[in-house]
Structures are given as structure tokens and as C-alpha cells.
């Protein structure tokens, strides 16, 4: 990282202060929403400007906890995101290793074939995928929510390039000991690939957690909604909602766990995202 230069040029310092100013723009909406969530709904109907003065209340949060299906939706999101992440890690690590390290007939062609998949936009196959899952009777199930992401080649691509960059010597030594390919993979390559695994895990988890279009058309029973869909359903019509304060409490309640998780693991998250770029 660049050293902080005491003689830092004006230009650089200026840009730093500009970015600090910009970061305020990133913060203001968050505080605005937090503030609104503590306001009684009736008062907000006079105008959102009332956020700057008392009274404040916890009613929105207690209403939320007492009544809404938010808990169920969060559970659905957690289940889907975690299972999806675990499965993607397993499948992509194994396949990535296969493509990176093992020789087999047609490997090159197959890898190119898989890479082409990077260019297939998920949203462009959603209609046939929906029809396919109708035939398989998979809508409104966790399986139906998880499966479509397991065929995405990004993870294979990421893991393959990571395995390829690992030094071969360690594996060769083990190969001389007559260890099987599988054993070499499990005992040597896999532990070394933890940084890439973390990267892939974070990307997959975020992707699953934030997925919108697929759950929108697949999870159509309210109890199968993911958090994203459940919250979306409540905001299409501010007219019929239970008040802006209540909606904002929902937003905070739904967003906060992820933000807290992120703050706790920020070091890993940021390193992992940067790691994906290094590939």
C-alpha cells in the first residue's frame, strides 16, 4: 500500500477530502431511514420532516416483532443462502480442481464450453427455467430456490484459476506416495484454497441473499417468500401499507443483521472481494 507521504501533494489530499464528503452522501440515507423507523406513523403522515423532532417511539419495532412474517422470511433467506453457498463451494471446488489440475480427454473444450456460460445472463433464461420447474413441481420449495444457482460457472472459473496458480510441487510429492487424486485434492489442494473459498462463499452468499427475480416468480406462497420478496411485497403500494415508520422499521430490521455481519467480518469480505479481482 502506498505510504502516507507527509509531503503529500495537494491533489491527493483534495481528492481524499472530496471522498470524505462523498461518504456523507452514502451515510445520510441510512440515518434518515433509521430516524424514520422510530417515528409514530400518524405523525409521519403530516410530513417526513417531523423526523427531526420528538416524539420518537419503539412501536414500529414492537408491531413488527408481534405481527409480521419477517422472521419466517429471514429464516427462508438464511436457509436458502447458506445451503446454496455450501453446495456451490463443494461443487465448484471439485470441478475447478478437475479443470485446473487433471488431464482428461476433452478438458480444454469442456472448459471453454463452461466459460461460455459466463456470458449467459440468468435473467434471460428465467422464463424457460420457470416452465422447467413447473414440470418438475419444484416451485415454492427450498430446492426450487437453490437449484438454479448451482449451474452458474463463475465459481468453477474462480476456483480453477486459483488452483492453477498453486505450486505443483506439493501435489507431486503426494502423487509419488501413491495418493489418489481425490486424496491429494482433499488433503493438499483444498486446504490451500481457503482464501478462494472465502471469496466464493461471500459472493455466493450475497448473490443468494439479494436474489430478486427468481424468488419473485418461484416463491409465490407467502410462507416461502425470501426476505427480498417479502419486503418487496409490502412496498409496492405505500397507499395500503401500515405507515412509513413501520416500513422503515422493516427495512432496518431486515438490513441490520447483514450490516452487522458485514461489520464483524469486513476484513474478510473486503479481502475476499479484492481477491476475486486478483484472479
Amino acid at each position: 500500500m502506498a505510504k502516507l507521504d507527509p509531503q503529500e501533494p495537494v491533489f491527493s489530499r483534495l481528492s481524499y477530502w472530496l471522498v470524505i464528503a462523498l461518504s456523507l452522501c452514502w451515510l445520510i440515507p441510512l440515518f434518515w431511514v433509521l430516524g424514520l423507523s422510530f417515528k409514530p406513523n400518524e405523525e409521519l403522515s403530516y410530513g417526513l420532516g417531523t423526523v427531526f423532532r420528538a416524539p420518537y417511539t419503539l412501536d414500529n419495532y414492537s408491531d413488527l416483532i408481534r405481527s409480521s412474517q419477517l422472521g419466517r422470511w429471514i429464516l427462508n433467506s438464511v436457509v436458502v443462502s447458506i445451503i446454496q453457498t455450501v453446495l456451490v463451494l463443494i461443487i465448484c471446488s471439485i470441478a475447478g480442481y478437475g479443470f485446473a489440475r487433471l488431464e482428461f480427454p476433452g478438458r480444454r473444450a469442456l472448459f471453454v464450453f463452461v466459460l461460455i456460460g459466463l456470458a449467459i445472463p440468468r435473467q434471460a433464461i428465467i422464463i424457460p427455467l420457470h416452465a422447467m420447474f413447473v414440470d418438475l413441481d419444484l416451485h415454492n420449495t427450498y430446492t426450487g430456490l437453490i437449484l438454479p444457482h448451482l449451474g452458474t460457472p463463475f465459481g468453477v472459473f474462480l476456483m480453477a484459476s486459483y488452483f492453477r496458480a498453486l505450486p505443483r510441487e506439493l501435489e507431486e510429492a503426494a502423487a509419488l506416495d501413491n495418493a489418489s487424486r481425490w486424496k491429494i485434492f482433499l488433503t493438499i489442494a483444498l486446504p490451500l484454497s481457503v482464501p478462494a473459498q472465502i471469496t466464493l462463499a461471500i459472493f455466493t452468499f450475497l448473490d443468494a441473499w439479494n436474489d430478486y427475480l427468481w424468488p419473485l416468480i418461484s416463491a409465490t406462497r407467502p410462507e416461502m417468500y425470501t426476505l427480498t420478496i417479502g419486503l418487496a411485497a409490502t412496498q409496492t403500494n405505500f397507499d395500503q401499507s401500515e405507515g412509513i415508520g413501520y416500513l422503515m422499521a422493516q427495512a432496518v430490521f431486515a438490513g441490520l443483521p447483514m450490516l452487522i455481519l458485514y461489520l464483524i467480518f469486513q476484513k474478510y469480505v473486503l479481502r475476499a472481494v479484492a481477491g476475486a479481482g486478483g484472479r
Binding site: H130, A131, F133, V134, D137, H139, I217, S218, T220, R221
Partner: peptide
């Protein structure tokens, strides 16, 4: 839209 999805899925 949701109902259409459910009808298509037979659920």
C-alpha cells in the same frame, strides 16, 4: 403475477 406463477405451478 403471483397468482399466475401459482397457477402455472399447479399450486
Amino acid at each position: 403475477e403471483q397468482l399466475a406463477g401459482r397457477l402455472a405451478a399447479g399450486d
